[in-house]
C-alpha cells in the first residue's frame, strides 16, 4: 500500500507540486522580507514616533491583526479595483495582491514582536547614546533597534512560520501555489488524502528550511552577556 502511494505520489502529485513550490517561494520570500522590513519600521514608530503617528500605526496593527487574512486578500484582489480616486484605480494581479496582503498582515504581527524587543531595552542605553550627541533617529537606528531586533528574533520566527502556512490562502484568490495545485490534483485524480498528505510534507519541508535559516541567523547575531542555550 505504501509502495502504491509512493508510485502515485511521485508520478501524479509531485511533478505538479514541484512546479507549484516555485510559485509558493515567489510568494513567501518577498512577503516575509517586506513584512519584516515594514514591521521593524512600524514597530519603531509605535514606540518612538510622535503621538498622533503612533496612534495611526496602532490602528493599522489592530485592523490587520483583528481581521482574517482571507478577508484582507479578498479586499486587495477583488475590492481594490473598485476604489477609484480621481478616475484611477489600482488593479493588482493575484500574485501582487497576495504579496501585498501577506506583507501588510505580516508586518502588523512583526511590529508587535519588535515593539516587545524595543521595550526590553534598558533606558541607560538610550541615555548613553544621547550623551554622545546622537539625535533620536540615530539613537534608535544604531543603538536601540540592533539590540531589539536580536531579542525579537525568536518571535519573528513564529510569524515567518505562520506566513508559510497561511500562504496557502493565496489559492483562494486563484494563485496556483502548493495548496491550489494539490486541490486540482485531488479533484482530477479523486485521491484527496494522498494529494493533501503529500502537500503537507511540502509545507513541513518549507517550515523546516525557514526554521533552519532563522536558527542560523540567531546564532550569527547572538552577542555575549545574555541568556542563551548552553553549548
Amino acid at each position: 500500500m505504501l509502495e502504491e502511494y509512493w508510485l502515485f505520489a511521485s508520478e501524479r502529485v509531485m511533478p505538479g507540486l514541484n512546479a507549484a513550490l516555485l510559485v509558493s517561494a515567489r510568494l513567501i520570500v518577498p512577503s516575509a522580507l517586506y513584512g519584516a522590513l515594514l514591521g521593524v519600521i512600524t514597530g519603531a514608530i509605535r514606540v518612538y514616533g510622535p503621538k498622533p503617528v503612533r496612534r495611526v500605526a496602532d490602528a493599522y496593527v489592530s485592523l490587520f491583526r483583528g481581521t482574517p487574512l482571507v478577508v484582507q486578500l479578498y479586499f486587495w484582489y477583488f475590492a481594490l479595483p473598485y476604489i477609484r480616486v480621481g478616475g484611477f484605480a489600482i488593479v493588482l494581479d493575484a500574485m501582487q495582491a497576495s504579496i501585498l496582503g501577506f506583507a501588510l498582515c505580516s508586518a502588523a504581527y512583526q511590529s508587535e514582536y519588535i515593539r516587545g524587543g524595543l521595550l526590553s531595552i534598558r533606558s541607560g542605553q538610550i541615555k548613553a547614546a544621547r550623551a554622545l550627541g546622537m539625535n533620536p533617529m540615530q539613537t534608535v537606528l544604531h543603538v536601540v533597534l540592533p539590540q531589539a531586533v536580536r531579542r525579537a528574533l525568536p518571535g519573528c520566527g513564529n510569524e515567518v512560520v505562520y506566513l508559510i502556512k497561511y500562504s496557502s490562502l493565496a489559492s483562494i484568490i486563484t494563485v496556483n501555489e502548493l495548496t491550489g495545485t494539490a486541490r486540482s490534483i485531488a479533484k482530477a485524480t479523486f485521491r484527496p488524502i494522498e494529494a493533501y498528505a503529500t502537500v503537507a510534507v511540502y509545507y513541513l519541508l518549507l517550515v523546516t528550511l525557514a526554521v533552519w535559516l532563522l536558527r542560523w541567523l540567531e546564532d550569527r547575531m547572538s552577542i555575549p552577556g545574555f541568556e542563551r542555550p548552553r553549548d
Binding site: G124, Q125, K127, A128, A129, R130, A131, L132, G133, M134, N135, V143, P146, Q147, R150, I223, G225, F226
Partner: peptide
C-alpha cells in the same frame, strides 16, 4: 534647540556610574 543640543552634547562627554556600554 535640537541641533544645538546635539552639537553641545558631542562636546560634553559623560561617564556613567553603571557604564551603560552598548551591549550589542
Amino acid at each position: 534647540k535640537k541641533r544645538e543640543l546635539y552639537a553641545y552634547r558631542q562636546q560634553v562627554g559623560m561617564i556613567f556610574q553603571d557604564f551603560n556600554l552598548f551591549d550589542h
